[in-house]
């Protein structure tokens, strides 16, 4: 009977404590990670639906669909309905009701793009306050993606820069390790999306990724340990090597 009482006391104490701990574990890092994951999901969804919209709209006006390659721009043009069909168009004229279906899909896709912009601004704002130096080097999307992979600013700050260089390339890295070098080692993970990568020659991608990772690592440490803002200085050091971006 004594044991039963102990159990009950421990049950209540642990449940209460754990609930409190779970509540207190919610922090800025988690908000950033949810926002960036949401951006990723929106990108995927918008892309999928845009492709469907293209197929559908091309029945009506294939020339416009063929001309405009950018999804977002295409959706806006569909909504605006300003484009006149060419006289010798391959497309068929639609009844009002049939065309209305296409339009409402375009409207929903457009609001997805607006939502993405809203999250982009939100991420920029929250990162500016939380880790300004990292933001200066990476921009909001890549910065937040690094967060998502590392788990938190603390974890990003304690990671070696060689790990930061390969965040997002886990699959390729383990393939390399498991085949004992028969598969080449990856040069970069998320960092391949960085604007600098578009500027350098293919042969220098690895070098650029390494430099970027170094500077991000330094920036993350400065931000985590609340040092003096050094984003501009670090950014300049990269720009001297590989040229300006944005």
């Amino acid at each position: 009977m004594e044991r039963k009482k102990d159990f009950e006391a421990l049950y209540r104490k642990n449940l209460e404590l754990t609930k409190k701990q779970v509540r207190e574990a919610v922090n800025e890092d988690l908000l950033i990670i949810q926002a960036i994951s949401s951006v990723g999901d929106i990108d995927k969804t918008a892309n999928l639906l845009s492709k469907r919209l293209r197929e559908w709209f091309a029945l009506y006006n294939p020339e416009l669909e063929h001309r405009v390659k950018e999804h977002e721009e295409f959706v806006k043009l569909v909504i605006a309905q300003n484009e006149k069909k060419a006289d010798d168009s391959m497309g068929k004229s639609f009844e009002k009701e049939d065309f209305g279906q296409i339009l409402s899909l375009a409207g929903h896709i457009n609001s997805l793009y607006e939502l993405r912009q809203q999250y982009f601004n939100y991420l920029e704002k929250i990162l500016k306050k939380y880790c300004p130096s990292v933001l200066a080097i990476t921009g909001p999307i890549i910065g937040a993606k690094l967060f998502g992979h590392a788990g938190s600013l603390r974890k990003l700050a304690v990671l070696p820069s060689s790990t930061i260089q390969l965040l997002g390339a886990e699959k390729a890295l383990f393939r390399h390790l498991q085949t004992r070098g028969r598969a080449k080692s990856p040069k970069h993970g998320i960092l391949s999306q960085h604007p600098v990568m578009g500027k350098v020659k293919f042969k220098e991608h690895g070098k650029a990724a390494r430099v970027l990772a170094d500077k991000i690592s330094l920036a993350a440490r400065i931000d985590y340990f609340k040092g003096q803002y050094a984003g501009d200085k670090l950014r300049k050091e990269i720009e001297e090597k590989f040229g300006k971006w944005e």
Binding site: F7, Y11, L15, K19, Q21, V22, A25
Partner: peptide, 22 residues
């Protein structure tokens, strides 16, 4: 991990013989 604890806490509320510890 706090994330998995959340689900575990809900289960503990049904099952009185489990104590969750984070």
């Amino acid at each position: 991990a706090p994330r998995v604890m959340r689900d575990l806490v809900f289960m503990c509320e049904d099952r009185k013989n489990i104590a969750p510890i984070l």
